[in-house]
């Protein structure tokens, strides 16, 4: 059974590369790619993917996008919400922390993934929490404190 993946990224070249890499991999079925949050939500509602790869800088992406996707089951009565994986060049620990708080279960740092993208997405789909980002440890330390030190925009 293939893993159905949707991609949200406003960079055309990156989108094409990612889609190309995943489509070349028999484990995946890319249901579509969107260039902003609205388009992505529509895509996810329409296709119900297992995993959403989400850029942080794309309009409507990042924390807002992750929250919206996490709430989708409530909105349209979908069976299970998609697994959200951040795929981004942002690596600041507080950003990683915020994404995890917003429900992301994977965080992949752009530029250092290469051929392992498929493997990482598959592991997330298998239930692992994958933080392929050099600041993961710092982000976890922040996350494990009781109170978030950064003010996260309220849902």
């Amino acid at each position: 059974m293939t893993i159905r993946v949707a991609l949200g990224d406003d960079d055309t070249a990156f989108r094409a590369a990612a889609v190309g890499l995943l489509e070349a991999d028999a484990r995946f079925d890319v249901v579509g790619a969107a260039a902003d949050g609205e388009e992505l939500v529509a895509l996810v509602e329409r296709t119900g993917p297992d995993v959403v790869l989400l850029d942080l800088r794309m309009p409507g992406g990042g924390v807002v996008g992750a929250r919206t996707l996490a709430d989708l089951d409530v909105l349209v009565g979908r069976r299970t919400p998609p697994l959200v994986v951040a795929l981004t060049a942002e690596t600041a620990p507080d950003v990683v922390e915020e994404m995890l708080r917003a429900g992301a279960v994977g965080y992949l740092a752009k530029g250092r993934i290469g051929s392992s993208l498929g493997d990482l997405v598959a592991r997330v789909h298998d239930g692992e929490l994958v933080l392929a980002v050099p600041t993961a440890r710092l982000a976890l330390r922040r996350l494990l404190r009781e109170e978030p030190h950064t003010s996260v925009a309220s849902p």
Binding site: G20, L21, A89, K110, G114, S116
Partner: peptide
Amino acid sequence: AAVDLRLGL
């Protein structure tokens, strides 16, 4: 990032 993925492919 795109080059990274293309090289992976």
